[in-house]
Design a binder for these strands. Sequence first.
DNA 1: GCCCAGGTGTTTC
DNA 2: GAAACACATGGG
Length: 224
Amino acid sequence: MKNLILEIYSTLLKRFGPQNWWPGDSPLEIAIGAILTQNTNWKNVEKAIENLKKKGLIDVDRILETPENELRELIRPSGFFNIKLRRLLNFIEFLKSHGGLDGLKKLPLHELRKKLLAVGGIGFETADSIMLYALEKPVFVVDAYTRRFLKRHGIIRGNEKYDEIRELFEKNLPRDVELFKEYHALIVKLGKVYCKSKPVCDNCPLNREKFWRVEDESNSDLRG
DNA sequence: GCCCAGGTGTTTC
DNA sequence: GAAACACATGGG
């Protein structure tokens, strides 16, 4: 196996087909969704986004003009609505002071990531999701599903830092935004169908005899 | 009723 | 540092 990370991508793509992530009509909608979906079912986030859309609030200035109480009710279905309201406003104010998403897009990758991470309520995954899916920057997104399937298949131990796992993908893949987008989406798909908290390993595309076994430890060369 | 979901920040050892 | 906890809705 030459490049396990790339082999996994091919296997998932063949099995599930293109996922065409991130769902959303605009970069701003995608970025807002990235914040609202923190530890939350996407279905709930869709309701919140739809509420905002109906009021024409996928717009930096319109959000800033809207009373907080109204915003809170609109995003309520996405859960954690008090904390997410604050995080959303932190981000929108950050956008306002940096020339919006178009302004951010001009920043060097490293500086952009640093600035996003400095916004209260934006952590590694949210920052990287915004960079990859809203700003089209070549950054690999690592989430709970990613960690879970890597650990299940013995590719990581489980105690690795976020950036270690991100680099595992970035170093083993061509620096291609569309590839990164699709791969992360496929991992989420895998997680939803097979690699759940309670695994469904029968028929899992990564668990066939011809590919490799879950117990297989021979992929340790990819670790740290 | 219980568990889970496309995390992050704070508190506490 | 790393573990434990708070944050909240809606679906299975």
